[in-house]
Amino acid sequence: MKIVVCIKQVPDAKNVRIDPNTHTLVRQGVESIINPFDLFAVEAALRLKDQHGAHVTALTMGPPQAEEALREVLSRGVDDAVLLSDRAFAGADTWATATVLAAAIRKIQDVSLIFCGKQAIDGDTAQVGPELATLLDMPYATFVKGLELQGDGHLHVVRKTDEGIEEWRLPLPALLTVLRDVGDPRLPSLKHKMRARKAVIPVWGLEDVGLSEDRVGLRGSFTQVVRVFSPPKRSDRWMLEGSVAEQVEKLYQYLKEAKVPGL
């Protein structure tokens, strides 16, 4: 069984800021990490491999340095990795990202299962997984907290929704986006670290995945970011002075006036 895990290298979100003069994103000096949810996706894939045997390939679209992220997951036990990198891929929205990932997965062939994280912590859209599944015409389940592969080529998954829990059954090939509940990521092992260091990671560009320039990157994107800015600071902050009893009374009246439900 071939499994693909899609991972994204993201800036450590807490350090990203807007330059007040140029009104652009400041990413310099910001450390890159693997999107935390994608480590859970890797873990889910590796657990299936442990239980049933599988070949796990990690896939990322990004700049050349995204190779680091791939080496890191190789050191955790992923079998091999492909870096999708090309100048033409830059500036992609979720649709253009999914387009490239789908083309790469078609090239890999016979993929039974695709794992994505629930969402990336930079773009934060949670759209790439469902869009990718749609492009590949696969059924999918989002917000998966538990899964089991059954003998008849079906998956039994448990999803977390706003309302509670749902159990679904879906046939392979399929795509899942996962929550942290699927299991804590294992640590890199010495053996896999050595393998990861030596691994040759193929880099696929536009021609390798057989796409034309107008379908990828900024040109292939439907959405355009026209402005970025810092969120307005809370201007309405009120610090309650006085004794505890006075603070209690002030808070009570404040919430009452604001018509907070339940009071």
Partner: peptide
């Protein structure tokens, strides 16, 4: 986006 550190205006 970016965990709330950044706001973006987007068109289609």
């Amino acid at each position: 986006a970016f965990g709330g550190n950044v706001m973006a205006t987007i068109i289609c």
